[in-house]
Write a protein that binds this DNA or RNA. Sequence first.
RNA 1: GCUGAUGUAGCUCAGUUGGUUAGAGCGCCUGGUUGUGGACCAGGAGGUCGUUGGUUCAAUUCCAUCCAUCAGUACCA
Length: 478
Amino acid sequence: MSKKNKKQKVKPQVLKGFRDYVPSEQLAREAMLAKIRDSFELMGFLPLQTASLEFAETLLGSHYNEDSLNELFGFKGPDDVDMALRYEFTVSLARFVASNPTLPLPFRRYQYGNVWRVDKPGPGRYREFMQFDIDIVGTQNLLADSEIIAGMVSTMQNLDVKNFKVRFSNRKILNGLMEYASISPEKSSDVMRVVDKLDKQGRDAVILELGAGRIDVSGDKIKGVELENSQISKMEEFLDIASVKDTDALNNVEKLLGSIEISQTGIDELRTILINLENMDVDKSCREIDLTIVRGLGYYTGPVLETTLLDLPEYGSVFSGGRYDNLVDRFLGRSIPAVGSSIGVDRLLAALIALDALKMKRATSQVLVTVMDKERLPDYLKLLRELRAAGIASEIFSGDTKNLTKQIKYGDKVGIPFAVIAGSDEFENGMVTVKNMQAGKEKAKETSDREEWLKAEDIQETIKVDTLIAYIKEKTSA
RNA sequence: GCUGAUGUAGCUCAGUUGGUUAGAGCGCCUGGUUGUGGACCAGGAGGUCGUUGGUUCAAUUCCAUCCAUCAGUACCA
């Protein structure tokens, strides 16, 4: 058949939107998770872990139909059950709360893990990705909303993210706006969706989409919401004042919508939150009221929250949420109010890597113990054991070669900062040689002569065996 | 989903106005150097030219199709 007898091979490919995390990325990711966890536990949040798979009906609720089944990783599982991978944690949290009636409320919990969505992948956007949520369930007290916002700011700060802003608004103001512009309930979610694009597409595009629609730069037609001109001009009145921030924005919107009860409630709530944030001493430069914030999700009922990186706005919101007072209804038939927010861990990680804002560690080992003389293996293992007992992460060269060149090359490639070398020269005198790989790397830049480089003195030192641990500790702490 | 662009080695790309053995740089492997990384030197592995079909004496090259990737856009519970 074919010219060569080729072995049947499986292509080593990953699914669209899925990915591997190489060790250096995973180390950064786990360091990030640890910081987030610390931030939330400092605020008294408790960990919860729920099942990755849920009944399709649990996840989708009233959306449980054919269309929505295509939008998630759903399938017929064992025992003939319709099930799906979770696409967020909030519904699972509601399910958990509904099935644990003795749970002390308010329940402050955090949860992190993978979620799965059938979305088109983009920069920092995957089909399997990690989210890290905080929520407070069982209270309408705006202190909860304020705590969530404060937690968002402090978490971003603990992650050493420099240039970010938590922006928030209130769905109640928008609900009143729908009333003001006489927009029917059927159209209001479409209108919200369009207004949500203001940031990305700009005011002109939004106005067009509220009316007859527009044609985008690629020539693609975008359907409009088909509002009346009178409705659109009322929306414009709002958009004009929405570009102003904080107290001024609230005062302006109060003039426009204050006569509508639900909007006034929303305005008052935001004022309360502002006062709380002030008393909590949350850095003003890290948060602001922005009345253009909408959030696509339909289940939000009150404050809505978003966090953007000012240096990378194209990554979208990296930490967002809001108040959802009706989600538990699905399971209980009565309301349990809740508010929460969620970090897109992988999106944020991708953004921070793109900003070069993370220290990327490559190795966990500080020391590589090389093996030159097989007869001396017990001595090498003793060194290794002592290093580890002293809390110094170490590994012995576990490859197949005795060739020292290759062992050192391995240490260089994987990024281990120190190599311990010992042969008969050292053992007979109770000594050991420690090579500083980083110093060697710098020296290599200065010299092109091999002999000179190998003889360079400050790259490695031969010291007494019993001073090895103190030596490494001193070098690594500096 | 829609619009457009692009698919040649692990990566970045060149190339063929259709013609027999498809190239470069980087990376990788081996040796120089089983007591030392980088640089250097010598050698080596690696390609169904994205898929399938069509036109042709002949297709990696032309045409169609599908698939994939990228960008924009839509949807996003």
